[in-house]
Design a protein around this nucleic acid. Structure first.
Lengths: 198, 198
DNA sequence: GATATAATTAGATATATATCTAAACTATAT
DNA sequence: ATATAGTTTAGATATATATCTAATTATATC
């Protein structure tokens, strides 16, 4: 569920030790022992906090010999922040959508930009319409599935030749996120919503 | 202390009941009993959560007769989010920037894309360069000032005709945020950093 | 004053979690 | 194989907190 993700994000940040840890990492990667020293905590305690941060995807890890180096995952830190705000201020966007007259715009984009075989004739230049097209495609991805870049490209090519542009737009507007060459669908609450675009 | 404030902000948001409560309030103010019903919680529990949210200044209260009406305090919700990011990413970005070799790219963009009178010749197509140009312009906005859309458009037109595109990019890359037709500069820590672009 | 309504406080309980020490594991080096 | 260094897991403990019921307080009306 979406709610739990946001809760976990804030739980991860709701502890002074973890915030100090992140602050240290903002200056560059560090390994466990160094963190334990600087934070005046035992190594197991650092592991404990690192696990929480990892679960929330706020840090990355890199193993070298026996040493594990931790570093920030800034995109996710930002994304969580945004997702929270979006969630809290989401004055029932769904309801609005379903009965808004704007829906006609969605219909018209789907009618005019997508061919009967489902392919995208061209990428809409107008921002709002582009978002509608992106959302339409994103909705056909499997939530929770991890895609390789190859797979994403193939998926997009079902719709349009220019998979590079569309893949980039997916990321930029938070339809998907990428980590270590793996792509995954974001929950719809994170998507940039065309309904909110003036 | 600074740290504790941020911790409390996240503690306040690190609970599903409180997030649902805020979500309800985003649709308009509500009194305690109504919240208890909608959340399926007892009234004392609502009081408990409201107290936490009040401590973090995330909600406001208004008393009418015996009834206490709660409502969001959106500025503080946002401010907490920004303060967190600022805290975590406070690595003295300036130092890094000033001695990075990448700086030459920045210089060259400023030299090549901006005319001597300061106007932007064209919007860079390359992502990284576009970010540099956006950042350069964003840096000339006043932090903490609220701008109307008219004002933002005028500001951007100092640089380039296509204020609509640039305004949109400002939002998209977190240089600014918009609410209720009001625009405001984000803290630099939230900006999408060209230094991080591969 | 007496009464009614909404909210808060008190007190109890159960769950979660931050922290530690000790033990186990993992990957390299001898 | 054995040793070593770093990390993780297990288990224990203390603190924090989400939730409830019951009692108390606060405000308004009669």
């Amino acid at each position: 569920m979406q709610l739990d993700k946001i809760v976990n994000y804030h739980k991860a940040l709701a502890d002074p030790a973890r915030l100090r840890l992140l602050l240290l990492l903002s200056k560059g990667e560090l390994h466990g022992q160094a963190l334990a020293e600087k934070l005046n905590l035992s190594q197991p305690t650092v592991t404990h906090h690192a696990a929480k941060l990892r679960e929330a995807a706020l840090i990355k890890e890199r193993r070298e010999k026996n040493t594990v180096y931790f570093s920030l995952n800034p995109e996710f830190i930002r994304a969580g922040s945004e997702a929270s705000l979006k969630f809290i201020f989401a004055k029932g966007a769904e309801e609005l959508e379903s009965l808004s007259p704007e829906n006609s715009l969605k219909d018209s984009v789907l009618r005019n930009f997508f061919a009967k075989d489902g392919r995208l004739r061209q990428i809409p230049a107008q921002y709002k319409k582009k978002l509608i097209a992106l959302q339409h495609m994103a909705e056909q991805l499997e939530p929770g599935t991890e895609y390789t870049e190859k797979e994403i490209n193939a998926f997009i090519q079902q719709f349009h030749e220019d998979y590079a542009t569309i893949r980039r737009e997916f990321i930029m507007h938070h339809f998907m996120y990428r980590e270590n060459e793996i792509y995954e669908l974001n929950p719809p609450e994170m998507w940039t919503r065309w309904e909110n675009v003036k």
